[in-house]
Design a protein around this nucleic acid. Structure first.
Lengths: 198, 198
DNA sequence: ATCGAAATTGAACGCCCATTCAAAAAATTG
DNA sequence: CAATTTTTTGAATGGGCGTTCAATTTCGAT
């Protein structure tokens, strides 16, 4: 029993440290030495629990993705069950992480870049993207004719990614509330524009 | 006279090689050795002409940015001088590079990530972003009331970035024409939505 | 308290990289 | 052609990194 407990704790310690180090030093500067030091552990432990640096990075990205998914689920639960409100909840959830961790967008960007040359990370990224898209499409179907559903969903997804990118660029002075507002404005515009022509 | 010619040629050779190596091996895998080998030159030449690897990377990003700016200017010249057509030209220009180099979006993403931890690259990135934004705002001002201009411009910029990101993710199977269409659809929606309330 | 297994350490190792710079090659000049 | 300058080379250097694994510590059971 204690064995499983220790393993869970250590893994989480290392993942947390990885996030902090990437925030501070970037993906390139995130060395096993720095990560282990910040976690208060030795370098050998990384290989022991994750098989190596690459395994730790994958686990960290998995952690980020599941955190995002949890945010979506939580915000969904507290909202009225109307399609429009659900869409807004998705937008809110996708920007809720920015407020808590001012620099988390940097970490996402780092992972995206890394995923470009790592099939495993790329696969995780794709799964997440498909989920967002089908989520959006599910609610949009109730708000506009079918032919516009996919295009609108793709536009919303691009908008979310684009604002994340801009947030990452603005070096700390991010304004997620503005991004949320603009995303929501677009959604309402899209609903309105595609209903007159249904 | 020949001296300037050689220097210009060598610089361009190295920048071209840098782009190709980043496309193929990613930012992390872009070593001075690989770049020099692809350019058919020796490693020492990099320090000689660029002062080091960092200088070469900055010059390469400058080259990318100025290429984009040239694309915008060229497309502008061939279009009717109406605000809407100019906006569409900006969108087209921002996706024209994707078609020729299927993987150039990867390179952009790599530079964005790198810029996060390099003040020089960040400065270049910011200049470019400001130019895009003020360009968009200039033409939007003629199409909608002032209060909506900035928000709409920011949304268009985010949309462009977001679709670039998605293009980078889709590993070769990118469809820039679709991204262009969706951006344009948004622009027309925004014009329409903000004119009834002027 | 003792033993054995699990967890942890961290120095040692090998690899890769950017940079340097003396020497060579090429180009230019007189 | 000889002298001089410019351009280019690439082996040597030094540093940083991830991984390994024998030794040590911690922990639970008896």
């Amino acid at each position: 029993m204690a064995r499983i407990g220790v393993e869970t704790i250590r893994r989480q310690q290392l993942i947390d440290a990885t996030l902090k180090v990437i925030e501070e030093h970037g993906f390139q500067g995130a060395t096993v030495g720095k990560i282990a030091a910040l976690a208060g552990l030795s370098v050998g432990i990384v290989s022991h629990y994750f098989g190596g640096k690459q395994g730790l990075l994958e686990a960290t990205m998995r952690h980020l993705l599941s955190s995002l998914q949890q945010d979506v689920s939580k915000l969904m639960a507290d909202r009225p069950n109307t399609p429009r409100e659900r869409l807004m909840a998705i937008v809110d959830a996708n920007f809720s992480g920015v407020q808590t961790h001012a620099q988390s967008s940097k970490t996402w960007l780092a992972f995206w870049t890394q995923a470009m040359h790592s099939p495993d990370l790329m696969r995780l990224q794709r799964v997440n993207e498909r989920r967002l898209l089908s989520n959006l499409m599910f609610y949009l179907r109730e708000l506009m004719p079918e032919p516009q559903v996919r295009s609108t969903a793709q536009t919303i997804a691009a908008l979310i990614d684009g604002f994340w990118l801009r947030a990452a660029m603005s070096e700390g002075r991010i304004e997620p509330s503005q991004a949320v507002t603009l995303c929501k404005t677009y959604i309402d515009q899209a609903i309105q524009a595609n209903n007159g022509a249904s």
